[in-house]
Amino acid sequence: MRLGALALAASLCGCGTTMTAHALTGRSLPAHRRAVPVFLVGQAPPSNYEEVAVVQAVGRGDHADDGHALEGLREEAASLGCDGVLAARVDVGSTQVAAVGVAVRWVAGPPPGAARAPWSQPPTPPSPTTAPPAVGVRSPWAATAP
């Protein structure tokens, strides 16, 4: 009972954060809530896409794992109206995990296999305050919910 209370307190404390950032290399679109598949480096990427941004996510504390880092990439891509993340790479440190990839938009519908791609769970709804900036505007770090 006491252990459960401690675990609940630890989970409510939110001792982890996932920070995300992006640099636009194309034109962004309004945010959406569709599933955003992530293709890791080495996986054959689809051919019919258009690059929109370089996206980055860093998980710290309880969020220092692959899952949170890739989820951060997915959420950042969705906030830019992108359909997928290609060439995603995850680097693991002792206290943090960083992921970087290319947010893309399908040019002629989703490629075959996109639905079966790893890490293709639907993203959490983006915050209403994360409207995509205009092309060329730098974005500050945006911390997701701890």
Partner: peptide
């Protein structure tokens, strides 16, 4: 800028390297 494709018909001029303690929006 592209992270996945070489430009069609482009002439390579040189190579670059960039590092930052900050984020990708300062690196690019």
């Amino acid at each position: 800028v592209s992270l996945t494709r070489d430009p069609p018909g482009g002439v390579e001029l040189g190579r670059f390297e960039a590092t930052t303690y900050s984020t990708v929006d300062e690196l690019i």
